[in-house]
């Protein structure tokens, strides 16, 4: 039995005119313990919805999600989601943000500050403990958000395009940082992105989603040795391969639309 199992899930929303919108349909995959899984796909294919379902923020219309042999019902207490938007509590400074989950567990202030400093150090933000979120750059805020998620010590770390709003240099730096953290903490990570390069750099395995309705189209194992060189033959080959799959999805969609018209 795998660590995380997504079993034929479907998700249907009610649209504005009460019509049914199928976001996800018959979607299944497995994820091993300690795996770094990346999900790529065209915008609007339901990647974020999928993560929200795994986090238990929404419930699937069909199928079920099994984490460590338990079917998820309601909020998934074993998972933490790092949102695409900046989600730090603006009224708390960095250390209190990172501490939040420890405070919920009623850990005394001294112990939790000690613990939080470890994670702040891990994401390279020592010295910024007392800063308020608005004083930090976007990249720093996302690093704090990752530290906050790690401090919660979840079995499963879900990341929804956390570096989406950042420039390429910062993005690359944070990717390397995240990998280092993952190698050290050995968490299971599900990382959603629409950036192919990011997926190949990070993942042990990449799932490619298609849209209308959202489901898994392809699966690609990434066997390149870490740290991965973005200019290596293997990296570029994979890049082209994934690009081709995504383009094919796009073309089928356009054809389907023509057919519908």
């Amino acid at each position: 039995m795998s660590f995380l199992r997504i079993n034929n899930i479907g998700k249907t929303f009610l649209g504005e005119r009460k019509e049914e919108v199928i976001a996800l349909s018959d979607l299944s995959f497995d994820c091993q313990d300690g795996e770094f899984l990346c999900i790529v796909g065209p915008t609007g294919c339901g990647k974020t919805t999928l993560l929200r379902l795994i986090a238990g923020l929404e419930q699937p219309s069909e199928g079920d999600i099994i984490l460590a042999d338990t079917v998820i019902q309601g909020l998934n207490r074993e998972a933490t989601l790092v949102f695409q938007q900046y989600s730090l509590f603006p009224w708390c400074n960095v250390i209190d943000n990172v501490c939040f989950s420890l405070e919920m567990k009623k850990i005394p202030k001294k112990t939790r500050y000690l613990e939080a400093r470890k994670f702040i150090n891990l994401v390279g933000l020592t010295g910024f403990e007392k800063a308020l979120p608005y004083e930090l750059s976007g990249g720093m805020q996302q690093r704090v958000a990752i530290a906050r998620a790690l401090a919660h010590n979840p079995k499963l770390l879900l990341l929804d395009e956390p570096f989406g709003a950042l420039d390429e240099r910062t993005r690359h730096r944070l990717q390397a940082k995240l990998l280092a953290v993952w190698q050290k903490e050995r968490k299971t990570v599900v990382f959603v992105t629409h950036n192919i390069d990011e997926a190949i750099f990070l993942a042990s395995r990449i799932l490619i989603m298609r849209d209308r309705p959202g489901c898994i189209n392809d699966e690609i194992k990434v066997d390149l040795a870490r740290p991965r060189d973005r200019r290596s033959q293997g990296f570029l080959k994979l890049h082209i391969k994934i690009r081709e799959v995504l383009e094919k999805i796009l073309i089928t969609n356009t054809n389907n639309q023509r057919g519908a018209l």
Binding site: L75, F89, F100, E103, M104, H152
Partner: peptide, 26 residues
């Protein structure tokens, strides 16, 4: 977003009120 973050980080309804809803509405 703040409410969902807090819930995922283990807040119960009481803590949610005290640590998120109140300071956010202050």
């Amino acid at each position: 977003l703040y409410i969902e973050s807090a819930l995922l980080l283990g807040a119960d309804q009481k803590k949610l009120f005290k640590k998120v809803i109140f300071p956010s509405s202050l």
